[in-house]
Amino acid sequence: MSKKESIQYAFVKSIPVLCSYIFLGMAYGILMQQAGFAWYYSVLVSMSIYTGAFQFVLTTLLASGASILTIAVTALFMNSRQTFYSLSYVDVFNQMGRKKLFMIHSLTDETFAVNYTLDLPAEDKRKVMFPLAIMCHCYWVCGSLLGSVLGQLIPFSTDGIDFCMTALFVIIFVDQWEKAERHFPALLGLGVAVACLLIFGENQFMLPALIIVSAVLVLYNSRTGKAVSAE
């Protein structure tokens, strides 16, 4: 795959993220503007932190003058799910040389999912993942900038456009379902996530859900592994 082809391929794959990040980024920029922050703060946060939900919460924390400790603990809890995404990419990113640090920084819910949809040989995959990561990061920063500069100048309501990301996750889920021999991991994820949502509520369910899912999968792997070696 040539450099040009890999960039074209990356752009096509990035379109769902484009729809989502531009508008979600704008929503973030508008929120920052309303809270009284200059545009360069939105850009700085979107460049250096680069997470969806936490950035929104950080705005309210900063506006209310929350302590650094509160902010640190919130960052730790809200973003700890990122560790689970990295876990699946240790081997891939370790082969990407100097690009590795940027790849680690730019791994989000969305880029994790889109990387997963790349149906390519390992070498081509690495060629596509880097431009894809840069594009997605640009969409997010540009969205934030647009939102904080234009504010509420947008003449129409874009409410609900962020559903494109939900749609992408649903499509990947269906795709995995069709390809998988065993549906246990997918069903486990659904069941545990819904249970944790009901128990821990909207803002706190991701971390317990991921911990429980991981623990069950480790047990599941060790049992199926034994079953295979016993055959």
């Binding site: 876990l87 997963y116 997918a186 996530a193 480790v218 599941y220």
Partner: peptide, 20 residues
């Protein structure tokens, strides 16, 4: 092994996350 199998579960968790 966990890193290999986890994405199938995470995608389900993310669907729930979007629909929370």
């Amino acid at each position: 092994q966990l890193g290999t199998i986890l994405p199938s579960s995470i995608m389900a968790v993310l669907v729930v996350y979007c629909l929370k």
